[in-house]
Design a protein around this nucleic acid. Structure first.
Lengths: 236, 236
DNA sequence: AGTTTATCGATAAAAAAATATCGATTAAAA
DNA sequence: TTTTAATCGATATTTTTTTATCGATAAACT
């Protein structure tokens, strides 16, 4: 039995069965976005060097990352065909076919996510929301219905939903999570500040603002320290 | 909102000068959250094993991570003093003293962040917002004023702000970013789906929804594949 | 008090990820 | 047509991160 090694389902240690490291996987959408820009500009081919320069990565890293996605291969001297690469990446990322999802917690953040129209670009379609608040139940947000949380389980089963988004306050997150798992949800995108416990067979991704902020604060601290020491900055 | 961007400024290759890896840094808030829970429950000491079990990490990993934060040391047989550890972590994370920040883009997501009351726990205080829309300028959101974007630079300089949050649509993000850098902002928390280019002296953290979703979709795909192959699931 | 056991902390080993090297290839230039 | 230069792709190396080992220590038990 393989247990997850990073907290809340985001293990640091377990290898990706597909061979792609998580770090690489996270870079993919960045490549995709850049390639789409370039494609719009009318460019047809691009080299790993050019991508790397823009993305501030090493060309080797880019080449290796892309090798996981590319069906066709790049051409020496010219690089990769951008359109092909976009297709490959979208396929790899699953952005090419839409996955239905439900969201629990129609508060401020929930509303924001429900109102966001860009998810279809990422292959995600939030079809309904659930909440406990009578004020919200049976309202619509961006054309999407908000139902009583009690109906979540049957809705999920009836509509074969596998992905759930959690946008409730931290103290309710575990409970919502448990219900989702019970209902048959297999992937959870958690925006609540909580360390969720899930069976190892469930995919969990935490959108942890605190963690992000921790990294940023740390960097800022380093910068301020260096500035005080009189080091030059803006080294471009 | 939609966000993604993983790379500029977040290269995988740059070593952390402080010796703490980014991965470890990102785990810290998780520890902190768990310890606070335990502390509330009245527990006084906790072992790395207990933390690891809950966080689904190895105890060794926990010990090593905590060794970067701990001033005091743990006691054999009983573990760490929870209160001390909380203090150490908050200090390490900079959550113990508040940093002022500004936000640009008072749309749906911007409003959500402005309304979120939990940032003070993370040492962040958004003091003002900026936007281009006349409808929003001079309004207040959660008691925080929205000003004309043109005033951002002088505001930042006048109030010695070092941290900026970007919540504008992707196509405007780079421009806003440039203005922030020009104004003297040293750390940028970017929620826009854009690959921002910043001087290397600027800390940049992208809240990359697409990247998160990529990881989650990938996991889900694996799970569905295994399910189809008839593997058991919910192995607890 | 003496023994046992859980836990720490330091160091060593292993694993994973990023980066470097280099021959092969192909477009463009001479 | 030959040479040159940019780029790929595979393999090797290095670096970083995680995990394992193990002696030391302090609480609990006998």
């Amino acid at each position: 039995m393989d247990f997850d090694k990073s907290y809340s389902g985001e293990k640091a240690s377990v290898p990706q069965k597909s061979g792609i490291s998580r770090a690489a996987m996270q870079r993919m959408p960045g490549y995709l976005r850049y390639l789409k820009e370039k494609s719009k500009d009318g460019k047809e081919y691009i080299s790993s060097v050019a991508i790397a320069e823009y993305m501030k990565l090493s060309a080797i890293c880019v080449k290796k990352d892309l090798s996981f996605a590319t069906s066709s291969s790049g051409k020496p001297k010219v690089g990769f065909n951008i359109k092909d690469l976009i297709n490959d990446l979208e396929k790899l990322l699953g952005f090419d076919n839409i996955t239905d999802a439900i969201l629990v917690g129609a508060g401020q953040l929930g509303k924001t996510l429900l109102s966001y129209t860009g998810f279809s670009n990422y292959g995600l379609n939030i079809v309904a929301a659930f909440d406990k608040s009578p004020v919200l139940i049976n309202t619509k947000i961006n054309g999407k219905s908000v139902y009583d949380l009690d109906e979540m389980e049957s809705f999920v089963k009836r509509n074969n939903i596998y992905l759930g988004v959690i946008t409730v306050p931290g103290q309710f997150a575990q409970d919502v999570c448990d219900h989702m798992v019970k209902a048959g949800i297999k992937a959870i995108w958690n925006f609540a500040p909580a360390n969720l416990v899930v069976p190892s067979s469930i995919a969990l991704k935490n959108e942890d603002m605190a963690a992000s902020l921790a990294v940023l604060s740390n960097k800022l601290k380093e910068i301020m320290k260096n500035d005080k020491k009189g080091n030059k900055r803006n080294d471009e």
